[in-house]
């Protein structure tokens, strides 16, 4: 079980493609920093069928004036809980 964090906006599609290639169905993808723009409906639809689950970091959403409907969000405590519940964390940036 791997927690993948990704902090790049959708313009950096290669970063997302690499992260997704490395994911399994047991893994979680956490969108942070500019990665939260992937929660915009036009991009979120591209994440609908990825292996594993996807969540976004709430403070980064709020900071950018985004509300995530399609993708679940977690607060900082939730981020920590994810780090603990996964074997390792892999950052994509």
């Amino acid at each position: 079980m791997v927690l993948h964090t990704l902090n790049q906006a959708p313009a950096n599609a290669a970063c997302m493609a690499s992260a997704l290639a490395a994911m399994t169905a047991q893994d979680t993808l956490l969108l942070i920093e500019d990665g939260v723009y992937w929660t915009l409906p036009t991009f979120a639809s591209q994440l609908a069928n990825i292996p594993g689950s996807v969540v976004a970091l709430a403070p980064d959403l709020q900071a950018r004036g985004l509300t995530s409907d399609a993708i679940e969000s977690v607060d900082d405590a939730g981020f920590v809980a994810l780090c603990v519940s996964h074997d390792k964390v892999v950052s994509w940036f």
């Binding site: 791997v2 290639a21 490395a22 994911m23 893994d27 390792k88 892999v90 994509w92």
Partner: peptide, 17 residues
Amino acid sequence: DDADLPALLAQHRHVLS
């Protein structure tokens, strides 16, 4: 191959990006 990336990650205790 892309399909073998998850296994490569799983083989290591830590992944440093």
